[in-house]
Simulated scan of single mutants.
Amino acid sequence: MSTLKSLTDLIGAQALGDHLTAAVHDLIDREQLDCAEAYQRITDAADAGDPAVLAATRQTWVRRDDVDPEEAPARRLYVLERTPTGVFVAFVDVDRAADDTDDGQYANVVPELLPYNDHSSGAELPVEELEMYRLEAWEPFEHLLPTVGGIGNVRPQTGAGS
């Protein structure tokens, strides 16, 4: 299964299309490419699983099996925010043996990042760090919007005092 197919299954065609179209427009602005070339580059990079294209807020990334835990000590990362220079992540499920605050002896997080391991403020990492991880879950903001079906139940007002 291609990465684009699995991403479509994960978040839906509309949300994926919106995400990739935003990346295309950003690439066009940065590199002054024509639209067709920009779409080709972005879709090729997305299909290859390039985190520079895929990384977004509200994603969970899991360390790949072929990556040494010494190189990527956190097993799961939750992207709190995508920035122009990288990603702010919270460490999730750092280690089975870690205590409730994830700062115990089994936490496996480098000491200088432990103060950021509070699941809310996060630690800033370069987006390239996500190459050691695979995208596991993605909750695009579109999933938080009310459904159109619920709007049909509202009756418009027809005049004063109605």
Rank of each mutant, 00 (worst) to 15 (best):
A15I: 02
F141Y: 11
N108I: 06
Y106E: 04
E136M: 14
L80Y: 03
V109G: 03
G150E: 15
T21M: 11
G49L: 08
A45N: 07
P115K: 04
E139W: 05
L10Y: 06
L4W: 09
T43E: 05
E131W: 08
T85D: 15
D29A: 14
L77H: 08
T60V: 14
E81Q: 12
Q14L: 14
A107I: 07
G122F: 01
D44F: 12
I151H: 12
A137P: 08
D102N: 10
G159H: 05
C35Y: 08
S120P: 04
E124G: 05
V89E: 00
V24S: 01
A13V: 06
T21K: 09
V148P: 01
D102E: 10
S2I: 09
L20A: 10
A74V: 13
E112H: 09
L114G: 08
G149E: 11
L130W: 07
G149V: 12
T8G: 04
H119K: 10
T147G: 15
A74L: 07
Y39D: 12
M132I: 13
A72S: 02
S2C: 12
E124N: 07
V62H: 03
Q32H: 14
P84R: 02
Q105M: 12
A56Y: 01
D18T: 06
V87D: 01
L20M: 13
A13Y: 02
E142C: 04
R30M: 12
T43H: 02
V62N: 02
R134I: 15
G150P: 09
G86N: 00
E112G: 04
R30A: 13
A13T: 07
A97T: 04
T60C: 08
D65V: 09
G12V: 03
S2D: 15
H19K: 02
D34Q: 05
D18R: 08
R75L: 15
R63G: 03
D102M: 06
Q32I: 05
D95Q: 01
D99Y: 02
T85L: 15
D66K: 05
A22L: 11
G104T: 01
F141A: 14
A90M: 00
A46T: 06
E128R: 13
G150W: 14
L130K: 08
S162A: 15
W61A: 00
A107H: 08
P115Y: 06
T158S: 11
R76C: 08
L54T: 07
P146A: 09
A56H: 02
G159T: 12
L145F: 13
A38H: 05
S121L: 11
S121D: 14
D65A: 12
L135E: 05
G122I: 00
T3G: 14
L125H: 07
Y78Q: 04
E112D: 06
P140K: 03
L4E: 09
A74F: 10
T3E: 10
D47C: 13
Y106D: 08
D99S: 01
T147V: 08
L135H: 11
A45Y: 07
P146D: 04
T8L: 09
L54M: 10
K5L: 12
G12T: 02
G49M: 09
L125F: 05
G161F: 06
L144G: 10
G49F: 02
T147S: 13
A160Y: 14
F141N: 15
R63C: 03
L20W: 14
T21Q: 11
P51W: 03
Y133K: 05
A15Q: 01
G104I: 01
A45I: 15
M1F: 13
A52N: 15
R155T: 15
V110H: 09
A46L: 05
V94Q: 06
L113H: 06
D9L: 14
